[in-house]
Amino acid sequence: MVEGNINTIEKHVSLPLDADVAKDLRAGEYVYLTGEMYVARDAAHGRLMDLINKGEKLPINIEGETIYYMGPSPAREGRVIGSAGPTTAGRMDKYTPTLLDMGLRGMVGKGKRTPEVLDAIKRNGAVYFAAVGGAGALLSKCITSSEIVCYEDLGAEAIRRITVENFPVIVVADHIGGYLY
């Protein structure tokens, strides 16, 4: 049981994450995120990595940014976005250490990460948050804007920029090696 690690500290944190604020976050803390972050999942990560491997410029600047691993369902008319909960972060593990070393500061997803990712989080003063998996309808209510930035052809897997307000997450991995799972 990991219950013992979880405290009831609640923090309100702005996005993009400030470097010092990120370093202050500890595994087990409840955090409400407000501000802007990117949305990207498997296919978009694959494309970013291809560009990095070829030494080309990325279509987004990830320095200091947070990526939400998510692929929304389509928005009904008049809505900002459809259902919008986290996807399994582990599928991005192959790409994550490189992105963290390039300055990525925050990640929002669900599920376990590899030791390589946890090391890269430590090395870069980054943080990994979990949102509640399977609560996409609830979480969509905290998203106030959403626009596709690139890779529109990927459909639900396009890279988006979203604005969130009091988006509920819990710190799962922090930069001093705290890890909740």
């Binding site: 369902s73 399977g134 609830l138």
Partner: peptide, 20 residues
């Protein structure tokens, strides 16, 4: 939160989970 999620999904016709 999952109870709230089910209620919102039903009332507002938003899929329970984005992975449909």
């Amino acid at each position: 939160q999952l109870q709230d999620n089910l209620r919102i999904a039903h009332d507002e016709m938003i899929p329970i989970c984005q992975d449909t």
